[in-house]
Amino acid sequence: MRYGWTTGACATAATTAAYTALLTGEFPDPVEVWLPKDRRPAFALATERLSAGSATAGVIKDAGDDPDVTHGALILATVSPGEPGSGVTFRAGEGVGTVTRPGLPLAVGEPAINPMPRRFIAEAVARVAASHGGTGDVVVEIAIPDGEEIARQTWNPRLGIVGGLSILGTTGVVVPYSCSAWIDSIRRGVDVARAMGYTHVAGATGSTSERVAAELHGLPEGALLDMGDFAGAVLKYLRRHPVPRLTLAGGFAKFSKLAAGHLDLHSKRSQVDLRLLASLAPPIGEQILAANTALHALELAQAAELPLGDLVAAKALATAADVLGPAPVEVDVLVIDRAGTIVGRAPG
């Protein structure tokens, strides 16, 4: 299946083109961007507009074969000079949301441009400035016409992101979501690990948790299973084809679902149960019930010095043990935050 590009990658491409035009008077088309893993995709421009004090460029998002609601959306970046020494200032234009509730990786009042896309854009601005004699002090406004309408098909309204979509993506790449292919790759990963004689494997929900598990336990690449949201697929296959030790690593929200007994952790098929989290931290149960997100619940517990991460890890471990049954597999669970810090562990 054909891969696509995230809104973050598209916004980076549009920003690169707009800032280049602001400094040189010409839009690069296509425009190349730098993404992790040495990817250097080039994007055709759909819109170019240059004025005395700003430049705007637009890229059409191609999500590949993924059923992404933002496929075909126009991602616009308008770049204008910022105050000296200000660096890159982000603003939400038409169709890009603003954060209004805690519990997200952005402060309340900030444009819904996630940390990794901000990093991509800031690095792109620095490269353009170095190449064309700019200062790198700019205001970058990202807009998505019709973004507010599209956002109604997402979780943004419920999360308190108002006015439009979020600019997302940790790698810049959209991997087509094929359940059967993904599950098959998990099974093949277990098969390879067993064939290599590995006695310890790790299943992680994402790249950050995978890195933490690998570094903590010194695991080779061949022992890492690309679990994603399919915790059940890992556990059920290991029940039939056991490996002596399994580490499960993932974010707090994902593993809150596993703690509740869900084996498919995708947002379309399972949701965080705040009632469960509240029951694990009775002193602040009412606060957790009113929390905006799982991350918000964790922050509340941390502020109250309650080990909610460890308690979620323990319940996730119990779910895993139930699925594995009598299979000779010893399991440990690592709950990771967005910064790569272990916030919960079982056994402790």
Rank of each mutant, 00 (worst) to 15 (best):
L334R: 01
R188T: 15
K315T: 01
I144R: 05
R245W: 00
A281G: 07
T89Q: 14
G87F: 10
L22A: 09
E110F: 06
A124S: 15
A46T: 13
I336P: 00
K268Y: 09
R211F: 03
A193L: 02
I342N: 05
A11L: 10
P36H: 06
W182T: 08
P84S: 07
K37T: 08
G103F: 01
K257S: 00
I150P: 04
R101Q: 14
T341P: 00
E123H: 09
T7S: 14
P176Y: 09
A204N: 02
A278R: 08
K257G: 01
T171L: 09
E330W: 02
G344A: 08
T70K: 03
R188F: 08
A278H: 11
V79L: 10
D184R: 14
L74W: 13
A193V: 01
F43G: 13
E26V: 15
A318S: 14
V33F: 06
A297T: 05
P242I: 03
I186N: 05
Q287A: 14
N292F: 02
I288L: 02
A290V: 04
G228V: 06
S80I: 04
T12C: 15
D332P: 01
E330Y: 00
S80V: 00
V175C: 06
D66F: 04
G134M: 07
A320Y: 03
V79H: 03
V162S: 04
T56N: 09
E149K: 15
G133M: 08
V234K: 00
A73T: 13
A339C: 09
L22I: 06
T89N: 06
A130V: 07
A214S: 15
G169H: 12
P102S: 06
S279P: 09
E286V: 07
S279C: 05
M196T: 07
R269Q: 07
V140T: 08
D146Q: 15
L277E: 02
C10V: 08
P28M: 08
I167T: 11
D66M: 04
A213H: 04
A202M: 00
V69Y: 05
A193S: 01
I113S: 13
D332K: 07
I336G: 06
M116C: 00
T15K: 04
V174K: 01
R240M: 08
D322L: 11
G133Y: 06
R152H: 13
T135A: 08
R194T: 08
A42Y: 02
G103L: 01
T16N: 00
R211L: 00
P176R: 04
G72F: 11
P105V: 10
Q153C: 07
D226Y: 07
V329Q: 14
A42M: 13
A231R: 03
A126M: 06
Y19D: 12
H71I: 12
R118W: 08
V329W: 12
P242Y: 06
V192D: 13
G325Y: 11
P117W: 09
E141M: 05
P328Q: 12
D184S: 13
A124Y: 05
V175I: 14
L324V: 13
G169R: 12
A314V: 07
I284M: 11
H266N: 12
E26Y: 09
R338M: 14
M227A: 02
L165M: 14
D62F: 03
V335H: 03
P84F: 07
A304T: 04
A231S: 15
